[in-house]
Design a binder for these strands. Structure first.
Lengths: 229, 229
DNA sequence: TGTAATTCTTACCGGATATAAAAGGCGTAT
DNA sequence: ATACGCCTTTTATATCCGGTAAGAATTACA
Protein backbone atom coordinates (compact mmCIF):
# COMPACT_ATOMS: atom_id res chain seq x y z
CA UNK A 1 0.00 0.00 0.00
CA UNK A 2 3.08 2.14 -0.25
CA UNK A 3 1.50 4.09 -3.02
CA UNK A 4 -2.25 4.09 -2.87
CA UNK A 5 -4.25 1.81 -0.62
CA UNK A 6 -6.16 -1.02 -2.21
CA UNK A 7 -9.77 -1.52 -1.13
CA UNK A 8 -11.81 -4.65 -1.72
CA UNK A 9 -15.49 -3.87 -2.21
CA UNK A 10 -17.80 -6.78 -1.46
CA UNK A 11 -21.27 -5.71 -2.56
CA UNK A 12 -23.92 -7.30 -4.75
CA UNK A 13 -25.63 -4.16 -6.00
CA UNK A 14 -23.65 -2.94 -8.98
CA UNK A 15 -24.89 0.62 -8.57
CA UNK A 16 -23.33 0.93 -5.14
CA UNK A 17 -20.15 -0.79 -6.31
CA UNK A 18 -19.77 1.70 -9.11
CA UNK A 19 -20.49 4.57 -6.80
CA UNK A 20 -17.92 3.41 -4.25
CA UNK A 21 -15.34 2.84 -6.93
CA UNK A 22 -15.62 6.41 -8.15
CA UNK A 23 -15.52 7.80 -4.62
CA UNK A 24 -12.41 5.81 -3.79
CA UNK A 25 -10.64 6.65 -7.01
CA UNK A 26 -11.17 10.35 -6.55
CA UNK A 27 -9.44 9.94 -3.20
CA UNK A 28 -6.40 8.24 -4.62
CA UNK A 29 -7.36 4.70 -3.66
CA UNK A 30 -7.52 1.60 -5.81
CA UNK A 31 -10.52 -0.65 -5.71
CA UNK A 32 -11.19 -4.29 -6.40
CA UNK A 33 -14.76 -5.54 -6.68
CA UNK A 34 -16.52 -8.70 -5.68
CA UNK A 35 -20.26 -9.30 -5.99
CA UNK A 36 -20.75 -12.49 -4.01
CA UNK A 37 -19.62 -14.21 -0.85
CA UNK A 38 -18.20 -17.32 -2.47
CA UNK A 39 -15.31 -15.54 -4.18
CA UNK A 40 -14.29 -13.37 -1.26
CA UNK A 41 -11.51 -15.57 0.17
CA UNK A 42 -9.91 -16.01 -3.24
CA UNK A 43 -10.14 -12.28 -3.86
CA UNK A 44 -8.48 -11.48 -0.53
CA UNK A 45 -5.68 -13.94 -1.17
CA UNK A 46 -5.26 -12.85 -4.76
CA UNK A 47 -5.35 -9.10 -4.34
CA UNK A 48 -4.17 -8.66 -0.73
CA UNK A 49 -6.25 -5.58 -0.06
CA UNK A 50 -5.40 -3.03 2.62
CA UNK A 51 -9.03 -2.80 3.66
CA UNK A 52 -12.32 -4.55 2.98
CA UNK A 53 -15.73 -2.92 2.63
CA UNK A 54 -18.27 -5.64 3.29
CA UNK A 55 -22.00 -5.62 2.66
CA UNK A 56 -23.82 -7.87 5.12
CA UNK A 57 -26.71 -8.54 2.75
CA UNK A 58 -25.11 -10.76 0.16
CA UNK A 59 -27.47 -13.21 -1.54
CA UNK A 60 -25.39 -16.37 -1.27
CA UNK A 61 -24.29 -16.31 2.37
CA UNK A 62 -25.08 -14.58 5.62
CA UNK A 63 -22.76 -11.65 6.13
CA UNK A 64 -22.05 -12.32 9.79
CA UNK A 65 -21.05 -15.87 8.96
CA UNK A 66 -18.76 -14.68 6.17
CA UNK A 67 -17.23 -12.14 8.52
CA UNK A 68 -16.41 -14.82 11.07
CA UNK A 69 -14.87 -17.02 8.38
CA UNK A 70 -12.65 -14.23 7.14
CA UNK A 71 -11.51 -13.36 10.63
CA UNK A 72 -10.32 -16.87 11.25
CA UNK A 73 -7.34 -16.32 9.04
CA UNK A 74 -7.27 -12.68 7.95
CA UNK A 75 -6.64 -9.51 9.98
CA UNK A 76 -7.27 -6.97 7.24
CA UNK A 77 -9.47 -4.11 8.49
CA UNK A 78 -13.14 -4.59 7.60
CA UNK A 79 -15.78 -1.89 7.42
CA UNK A 80 -19.34 -3.15 7.34
CA UNK A 81 -21.82 -1.42 5.07
CA UNK A 82 -25.32 -2.62 5.64
CA UNK A 83 -29.00 -1.79 5.45
CA UNK A 84 -29.50 -3.60 8.74
CA UNK A 85 -29.70 -0.95 11.41
CA UNK A 86 -30.51 -2.85 14.59
CA UNK A 87 -28.28 -2.62 17.61
CA UNK A 88 -27.96 -6.37 17.63
CA UNK A 89 -26.58 -6.61 14.10
CA UNK A 90 -24.07 -3.85 14.78
CA UNK A 91 -22.83 -5.34 18.04
CA UNK A 92 -22.62 -8.78 16.53
CA UNK A 93 -20.58 -7.57 13.57
CA UNK A 94 -18.22 -5.56 15.74
CA UNK A 95 -17.71 -8.52 18.03
CA UNK A 96 -17.20 -10.78 15.07
CA UNK A 97 -14.16 -8.71 14.21
CA UNK A 98 -15.44 -5.85 12.10
CA UNK A 99 -13.60 -2.58 12.63
CA UNK A 100 -16.50 -0.28 11.84
CA UNK A 101 -20.16 -0.37 10.87
CA UNK A 102 -22.05 2.07 8.66
CA UNK A 103 -25.76 1.90 8.00
CA UNK A 104 -27.08 2.49 4.49
CA UNK A 105 -27.77 5.03 3.21
CA UNK A 106 -24.39 6.32 4.25
CA UNK A 107 -22.55 9.60 3.86
CA UNK A 108 -19.69 9.32 1.39
CA UNK A 109 -17.50 11.75 3.27
CA UNK A 110 -18.03 9.86 6.50
CA UNK A 111 -17.19 6.55 4.88
CA UNK A 112 -13.99 7.98 3.45
CA UNK A 113 -13.06 9.45 6.82
CA UNK A 114 -13.65 6.11 8.52
CA UNK A 115 -11.62 4.32 5.87
CA UNK A 116 -8.76 6.67 6.63
CA UNK A 117 -9.10 5.94 10.35
CA UNK A 118 -8.92 2.22 9.69
CA UNK A 119 -5.88 2.60 7.44
CA UNK A 120 -4.27 4.81 10.05
CA UNK A 121 -4.70 1.99 12.56
CA UNK A 122 -3.10 -0.62 10.39
CA UNK A 123 -0.18 1.70 9.78
CA UNK A 124 0.51 1.87 13.50
CA UNK A 125 1.45 -1.78 13.59
CA UNK A 126 2.72 -1.82 10.04
CA UNK A 127 5.58 0.01 8.42
CA UNK A 128 4.36 2.13 5.58
CA UNK A 129 2.48 5.35 6.05
CA UNK A 130 0.15 7.48 4.08
CA UNK A 131 1.93 8.79 1.05
CA UNK A 132 1.62 11.92 -1.04
CA UNK A 133 2.99 11.51 -4.51
CA UNK A 134 3.44 14.16 -7.17
CA UNK A 135 5.45 12.75 -10.02
CA UNK A 136 8.95 11.95 -8.78
CA UNK A 137 8.25 13.72 -5.51
CA UNK A 138 7.08 11.59 -2.62
CA UNK A 139 6.14 12.58 0.92
CA UNK A 140 5.62 9.93 3.56
CA UNK A 141 3.43 11.53 6.21
CA UNK A 142 4.16 8.97 8.92
CA UNK A 143 7.92 9.05 8.64
CA UNK A 144 8.14 12.66 7.45
CA UNK A 145 10.41 11.45 4.72
CA UNK A 146 10.52 13.47 1.51
CA UNK A 147 12.17 11.93 -1.51
CA UNK A 148 12.80 13.35 -4.95
CA UNK A 149 13.77 10.75 -7.52
CA UNK A 150 14.52 8.32 -4.65
CA UNK A 151 16.91 10.81 -3.06
CA UNK A 152 15.94 11.98 0.39
CA UNK A 153 15.74 15.72 0.85
CA UNK A 154 15.64 17.53 4.16
CA UNK A 155 12.95 20.14 4.68
CA UNK A 156 12.54 22.63 7.49
CA UNK A 157 9.26 22.46 9.45
CA UNK A 158 7.76 25.36 7.50
CA UNK A 159 8.78 23.94 4.15
CA UNK A 160 7.38 20.56 5.13
CA UNK A 161 4.05 22.02 6.17
CA UNK A 162 3.85 24.02 2.96
CA UNK A 163 4.55 21.00 0.82
CA UNK A 164 2.11 18.72 2.62
CA UNK A 165 -0.62 21.32 2.61
CA UNK A 166 -0.21 21.70 -1.14
CA UNK A 167 0.20 18.00 -1.69
CA UNK A 168 -2.86 17.01 0.30
CA UNK A 169 -4.93 19.11 -2.06
CA UNK A 170 -3.07 18.16 -5.19
CA UNK A 171 -4.50 19.83 -8.25
CA UNK A 172 -6.53 22.32 -6.31
CA UNK A 173 -5.67 25.95 -5.85
CA UNK A 174 -4.80 26.94 -2.28
CA UNK A 175 -5.15 30.63 -1.56
CA UNK A 176 -2.48 32.65 0.18
CA UNK A 177 -4.58 33.03 3.30
CA UNK A 178 -5.36 29.32 3.43
CA UNK A 179 -1.66 28.51 3.27
CA UNK A 180 -0.78 31.16 5.83
CA UNK A 181 -3.37 29.76 8.21
CA UNK A 182 -2.30 26.17 7.65
CA UNK A 183 1.37 26.88 8.26
CA UNK A 184 1.50 29.75 10.74
CA UNK A 185 -1.89 29.35 12.40
CA UNK A 186 -4.07 32.18 13.40
CA UNK A 187 -1.52 34.91 12.93
CA UNK A 188 -3.40 36.22 9.93
CA UNK A 189 -1.66 39.58 10.01
CA UNK A 190 1.16 38.11 8.01
CA UNK A 191 1.21 39.04 4.37
CA UNK A 192 2.01 36.69 1.58
CA UNK A 193 5.64 37.77 1.34
CA UNK A 194 6.46 35.05 3.88
CA UNK A 195 4.99 32.56 1.51
CA UNK A 196 7.14 33.70 -1.39
CA UNK A 197 10.36 33.21 0.55
CA UNK A 198 9.54 29.75 1.74
CA UNK A 199 7.99 28.66 -1.52
CA UNK A 200 11.27 29.72 -3.08
CA UNK A 201 13.30 27.61 -0.65
CA UNK A 202 11.00 24.70 -1.22
CA UNK A 203 11.32 25.02 -4.96
CA UNK A 204 15.09 25.11 -4.71
CA UNK A 205 15.18 21.92 -2.69
CA UNK A 206 12.85 19.97 -4.95
CA UNK A 207 14.43 21.37 -8.09
CA UNK A 208 11.47 23.30 -9.42
CA UNK A 209 11.93 26.22 -11.80
CA UNK A 210 9.40 28.98 -11.02
CA UNK A 211 9.36 30.05 -14.66
CA UNK A 212 8.60 26.56 -15.82
CA UNK A 213 7.40 24.64 -12.78
CA UNK A 214 6.82 20.93 -12.65
CA UNK A 215 5.32 20.75 -9.18
CA UNK A 216 4.33 24.07 -7.62
CA UNK A 217 2.38 26.44 -9.85
CA UNK A 218 1.88 30.09 -9.02
CA UNK A 219 -1.64 31.41 -9.42
CA UNK A 220 -0.98 35.15 -9.56
CA UNK A 221 -2.85 37.14 -6.98
CA UNK A 222 -4.56 34.05 -5.61
CA UNK A 223 -2.22 31.37 -4.34
CA UNK A 224 -0.47 28.22 -5.43
CA UNK A 225 -1.34 24.76 -6.57
CA UNK A 226 0.43 21.51 -7.32
CA UNK A 227 -0.21 19.48 -10.36
CA UNK A 228 -2.56 16.59 -9.75
CA UNK A 229 -0.70 13.30 -9.30
CA UNK B 1 -4.73 -2.82 31.39
CA UNK B 2 -4.20 -6.51 31.17
CA UNK B 3 -7.21 -7.30 33.30
CA UNK B 4 -9.56 -4.32 33.33
CA UNK B 5 -9.10 -1.39 31.00
CA UNK B 6 -9.29 2.15 32.36
CA UNK B 7 -11.60 4.55 30.54
CA UNK B 8 -11.53 8.33 30.93
CA UNK B 9 -15.00 9.84 30.53
CA UNK B 10 -14.98 13.50 29.53
CA UNK B 11 -18.56 14.72 29.75
CA UNK B 12 -20.19 17.69 31.42
CA UNK B 13 -23.63 16.20 32.03
CA UNK B 14 -23.44 14.28 35.27
CA UNK B 15 -26.39 12.06 34.35
CA UNK B 16 -24.58 10.70 31.33
CA UNK B 17 -21.34 10.34 33.26
CA UNK B 18 -23.09 8.30 35.90
CA UNK B 19 -24.82 6.21 33.29
CA UNK B 20 -21.59 5.50 31.44
CA UNK B 21 -19.80 4.66 34.66
CA UNK B 22 -22.36 2.00 35.51
CA UNK B 23 -22.32 0.59 32.00
CA UNK B 24 -18.54 0.32 32.01
CA UNK B 25 -18.33 -1.17 35.47
CA UNK B 26 -20.81 -3.88 34.62
CA UNK B 27 -18.49 -4.78 31.75
CA UNK B 28 -15.43 -5.05 33.94
CA UNK B 29 -13.91 -1.70 33.05
CA UNK B 30 -12.67 1.03 35.36
CA UNK B 31 -13.70 4.61 34.76
CA UNK B 32 -12.27 7.99 35.57
CA UNK B 33 -14.43 11.08 35.14
CA UNK B 34 -13.79 14.62 34.05
CA UNK B 35 -16.47 17.26 33.58
CA UNK B 36 -14.56 20.03 31.80
CA UNK B 37 -11.99 20.54 29.10
CA UNK B 38 -9.43 22.36 31.21
CA UNK B 39 -8.56 19.37 33.39
CA UNK B 40 -8.37 16.82 30.59
CA UNK B 41 -4.59 16.93 29.99
CA UNK B 42 -3.86 16.59 33.71
CA UNK B 43 -6.31 13.71 33.94
CA UNK B 44 -4.71 11.91 31.02
CA UNK B 45 -1.24 12.38 32.45
CA UNK B 46 -2.32 11.41 35.93
CA UNK B 47 -4.40 8.36 35.16
CA UNK B 48 -2.97 7.16 31.83
CA UNK B 49 -6.26 5.76 30.57
CA UNK B 50 -6.47 3.02 27.96
CA UNK B 51 -9.24 4.86 26.14
CA UNK B 52 -10.96 8.23 26.23
CA UNK B 53 -14.65 8.92 25.69
CA UNK B 54 -14.92 12.57 24.73
CA UNK B 55 -18.01 14.74 24.52
CA UNK B 56 -17.60 17.44 21.89
CA UNK B 57 -20.00 19.83 23.59
CA UNK B 58 -18.05 20.85 26.66
CA UNK B 59 -18.87 24.32 27.97
CA UNK B 60 -15.34 25.67 28.39
CA UNK B 61 -13.68 24.74 25.11
CA UNK B 62 -14.58 23.59 21.63
CA UNK B 63 -14.32 19.84 21.45
CA UNK B 64 -12.58 19.71 18.09
CA UNK B 65 -9.93 22.08 19.37
CA UNK B 66 -9.43 19.98 22.50
CA UNK B 67 -9.16 16.88 20.34
CA UNK B 68 -6.41 18.43 18.25
CA UNK B 69 -4.53 19.50 21.37
CA UNK B 70 -4.66 16.04 22.87
CA UNK B 71 -3.51 14.42 19.65
CA UNK B 72 -0.37 16.52 19.56
CA UNK B 73 1.17 14.46 22.32
CA UNK B 74 -1.14 11.57 23.15
CA UNK B 75 -2.01 8.54 21.06
CA UNK B 76 -4.61 6.98 23.36
CA UNK B 77 -7.74 5.87 21.46
CA UNK B 78 -10.54 8.45 21.56
CA UNK B 79 -14.23 7.78 20.94
CA UNK B 80 -16.32 10.90 20.34
CA UNK B 81 -19.76 11.08 21.89
CA UNK B 82 -21.68 14.07 20.66
CA UNK B 83 -25.08 15.52 19.99
CA UNK B 84 -23.68 17.07 16.82
CA UNK B 85 -24.82 14.87 14.00
CA UNK B 86 -23.67 16.66 10.84
CA UNK B 87 -21.40 14.96 8.37
CA UNK B 88 -18.95 17.82 8.70
CA UNK B 89 -18.50 17.43 12.45
CA UNK B 90 -17.98 13.70 12.10
CA UNK B 91 -15.43 13.96 9.32
CA UNK B 92 -13.58 16.75 11.10
CA UNK B 93 -13.34 14.77 14.33
CA UNK B 94 -12.18 11.61 12.58
CA UNK B 95 -9.55 13.56 10.68
CA UNK B 96 -8.48 15.30 13.86
CA UNK B 97 -7.49 11.93 15.22
CA UNK B 98 -10.64 10.49 16.76
CA UNK B 99 -11.01 6.73 16.40
CA UNK B 100 -14.79 6.59 16.35
CA UNK B 101 -17.82 8.87 16.54
CA UNK B 102 -21.21 8.16 18.08
CA UNK B 103 -24.16 10.48 17.93
CA UNK B 104 -26.32 11.02 21.02
CA UNK B 105 -28.60 9.46 21.91
CA UNK B 106 -26.49 6.36 21.57
CA UNK B 107 -27.03 2.68 22.10
CA UNK B 108 -25.15 1.42 25.13
CA UNK B 109 -24.45 -1.96 23.62
CA UNK B 110 -23.06 -0.35 20.48
CA UNK B 111 -20.84 1.98 22.49
CA UNK B 112 -19.47 -0.97 24.46
CA UNK B 113 -18.86 -2.92 21.28
CA UNK B 114 -17.03 0.02 19.74
CA UNK B 115 -14.96 0.47 22.89
CA UNK B 116 -13.93 -3.17 22.60
CA UNK B 117 -12.97 -2.63 18.97
CA UNK B 118 -10.78 0.33 19.91
CA UNK B 119 -9.12 -1.59 22.75
CA UNK B 120 -8.58 -4.53 20.42
CA UNK B 121 -6.70 -2.21 18.10
CA UNK B 122 -4.36 -0.86 20.73
CA UNK B 123 -3.63 -4.38 21.96
CA UNK B 124 -2.52 -5.54 18.55
CA UNK B 125 0.36 -3.14 18.56
CA UNK B 126 1.12 -3.75 22.21
CA UNK B 127 1.80 -7.40 22.77
CA UNK B 128 3.57 -8.10 19.52
CA UNK B 129 7.33 -8.20 19.32
CA UNK B 130 9.34 -8.82 22.44
CA UNK B 131 12.46 -7.84 20.57
CA UNK B 132 13.36 -4.54 19.04
CA UNK B 133 16.15 -4.68 16.53
CA UNK B 134 17.79 -1.76 14.81
CA UNK B 135 20.84 -2.91 12.96
CA UNK B 136 23.38 -4.15 15.50
CA UNK B 137 21.30 -2.80 18.34
CA UNK B 138 18.91 -5.21 20.04
CA UNK B 139 16.48 -4.60 22.88
CA UNK B 140 14.82 -7.52 24.60
CA UNK B 141 11.64 -6.11 26.11
CA UNK B 142 11.01 -9.10 28.37
CA UNK B 143 14.43 -9.14 30.02
CA UNK B 144 15.17 -5.42 29.56
CA UNK B 145 18.48 -6.42 28.06
CA UNK B 146 20.11 -4.12 25.53
CA UNK B 147 22.94 -5.38 23.40
CA UNK B 148 25.09 -3.64 20.84
CA UNK B 149 27.07 -5.98 18.64
CA UNK B 150 26.43 -8.80 21.15
CA UNK B 151 27.86 -6.69 23.97
CA UNK B 152 25.45 -5.84 26.72
CA UNK B 153 25.13 -2.18 27.55
CA UNK B 154 23.58 -0.79 30.68
CA UNK B 155 20.93 1.86 30.30
CA UNK B 156 19.30 3.95 32.97
CA UNK B 157 15.48 3.74 33.22
CA UNK B 158 15.01 6.98 31.31
CA UNK B 159 17.41 5.98 28.59
CA UNK B 160 15.69 2.63 28.31
CA UNK B 161 12.26 4.20 27.96
CA UNK B 162 13.54 6.62 25.38
CA UNK B 163 15.12 3.88 23.33
CA UNK B 164 12.12 1.57 23.46
CA UNK B 165 9.68 4.33 22.64
CA UNK B 166 11.74 5.21 19.60
CA UNK B 167 12.36 1.60 18.70
CA UNK B 168 8.72 0.57 18.90
CA UNK B 169 7.97 3.10 16.20
CA UNK B 170 11.08 2.44 14.19
CA UNK B 171 11.27 4.64 11.14
CA UNK B 172 8.58 6.98 12.31
CA UNK B 173 9.08 10.42 13.72
CA UNK B 174 8.17 10.82 17.39
CA UNK B 175 7.55 14.39 18.40
CA UNK B 176 9.11 15.99 21.44
CA UNK B 177 5.79 16.13 23.27
CA UNK B 178 5.02 12.50 22.50
CA UNK B 179 8.39 11.45 23.91
CA UNK B 180 7.99 13.66 26.96
CA UNK B 181 4.61 12.11 27.68
CA UNK B 182 5.85 8.57 27.09
CA UNK B 183 8.91 8.93 29.30
CA UNK B 184 8.10 11.51 31.96
CA UNK B 185 4.32 11.58 31.73
CA UNK B 186 4.24 15.32 31.74
CA UNK B 187 3.75 17.87 29.07
CA UNK B 188 6.81 20.05 29.46
CA UNK B 189 6.60 21.26 25.91
CA UNK B 190 8.07 24.52 27.12
CA UNK B 191 11.47 22.98 27.27
CA UNK B 192 12.71 19.85 25.57
CA UNK B 193 16.06 20.18 27.30
CA UNK B 194 15.43 16.96 29.22
CA UNK B 195 15.23 15.17 25.96
CA UNK B 196 18.43 16.65 24.62
CA UNK B 197 20.44 15.56 27.63
CA UNK B 198 19.18 12.01 27.76
CA UNK B 199 19.28 11.55 24.04
CA UNK B 200 22.89 12.61 24.29
CA UNK B 201 23.64 10.05 27.01
CA UNK B 202 21.84 7.38 25.05
CA UNK B 203 23.80 8.21 21.95
CA UNK B 204 27.07 8.02 23.83
CA UNK B 205 26.26 4.56 25.16
CA UNK B 206 25.21 3.09 21.84
CA UNK B 207 28.03 4.83 20.02
CA UNK B 208 25.98 7.10 17.83
CA UNK B 209 27.45 10.30 16.43
CA UNK B 210 24.79 13.06 16.40
CA UNK B 211 26.38 14.66 13.36
CA UNK B 212 26.30 11.42 11.45
CA UNK B 213 23.88 9.13 13.27
CA UNK B 214 23.34 5.46 12.56
CA UNK B 215 20.40 4.91 14.91
CA UNK B 216 18.82 8.04 16.34
CA UNK B 217 18.08 10.80 13.88
CA UNK B 218 17.21 14.36 14.85
CA UNK B 219 14.25 15.91 13.07
CA UNK B 220 14.84 19.62 13.71
CA UNK B 221 11.97 21.40 15.33
CA UNK B 222 9.89 18.22 15.53
CA UNK B 223 11.44 15.32 17.35
CA UNK B 224 13.53 12.22 16.78
CA UNK B 225 13.28 8.98 14.90
CA UNK B 226 15.22 5.77 14.53
CA UNK B 227 16.10 4.28 11.24
CA UNK B 228 13.67 1.62 10.12
CA UNK B 229 14.99 -1.90 10.84
C1' DT C 1 25.28 6.33 56.71
C1' DG C 2 28.23 6.84 52.99
C1' DT C 3 29.05 6.14 48.24
C1' DA C 4 27.79 5.69 43.59
C1' DA C 5 24.53 6.16 40.06
C1' DT C 6 21.10 8.77 38.09
C1' DT C 7 18.60 12.74 37.14
C1' DC C 8 18.00 17.64 37.02
C1' DT C 9 19.60 22.36 36.39
C1' DT C 10 22.09 25.91 34.28
C1' DA C 11 24.83 27.97 30.94
C1' DC C 12 27.10 28.43 26.53
C1' DC C 13 28.21 27.80 21.62
C1' DG C 14 27.54 27.25 16.85
C1' DG C 15 24.79 26.50 13.13
C1' DA C 16 20.34 26.40 11.16
C1' DT C 17 16.19 28.84 10.44
C1' DA C 18 12.87 32.55 10.32
C1' DT C 19 12.10 37.24 9.55
C1' DA C 20 12.75 41.65 7.38
C1' DA C 21 13.78 44.77 3.78
C1' DA C 22 15.34 45.97 -0.62
C1' DA C 23 16.41 45.15 -5.36
C1' DG C 24 15.40 42.97 -9.84
C1' DG C 25 12.32 40.96 -13.57
C1' DC C 26 8.17 40.42 -16.13
C1' DG C 27 3.76 41.59 -17.87
C1' DT C 28 0.07 44.77 -18.20
C1' DA C 29 -2.43 48.93 -18.30
C1' DT C 30 -2.82 53.70 -18.88
C1' DA D 1 6.77 54.44 -23.46
C1' DT D 2 6.40 54.68 -18.78
C1' DA D 3 4.63 53.49 -14.52
C1' DC D 4 2.61 50.22 -11.72
C1' DG D 5 1.63 45.76 -9.59
C1' DC D 6 2.97 41.24 -8.69
C1' DC D 7 6.28 37.74 -8.14
C1' DT D 8 11.02 36.40 -7.51
C1' DT D 9 15.67 36.82 -5.88
C1' DT D 10 19.13 38.63 -2.96
C1' DT D 11 21.13 40.20 1.19
C1' DA D 12 21.23 41.07 6.00
C1' DT D 13 19.90 40.48 10.78
C1' DA D 14 17.99 38.24 14.68
C1' DT D 15 16.12 34.46 16.80
C1' DC D 16 15.62 29.71 17.78
C1' DC D 17 17.19 25.16 18.53
C1' DG D 18 20.01 21.26 19.35
C1' DG D 19 24.47 19.59 21.13
C1' DT D 20 27.75 19.94 24.82
C1' DA D 21 29.71 20.45 29.32
C1' DA D 22 29.93 20.73 34.25
C1' DG D 23 28.04 20.87 38.59
C1' DA D 24 24.04 20.35 41.92
C1' DA D 25 20.33 17.70 43.66
C1' DT D 26 18.17 13.59 44.10
C1' DT D 27 17.75 8.77 44.41
C1' DA D 28 19.38 4.01 44.90
C1' DC D 29 21.93 0.86 47.24
C1' DA D 30 25.35 -1.33 50.01
Amino acid sequence: MANSPKILIVEDESEIRKFLKVALQSNNMQSVECDNARDVPAQIIGTRPDLIILDLGLPDKDGQELLQEIREWCKTPIIILSARFTEMEKVLALENGADDYLVKPFSTAELLARIKVALRHSNVGGDEGYLIQIGDLKVDLSTRQVTYCENEIKLTPIEYKLLTELGKNAGKVITHSQLLYAVWGKRANLDSSYLRIHIQHLREKIGDDPMNPKYIFTIPGIGYKTRGI
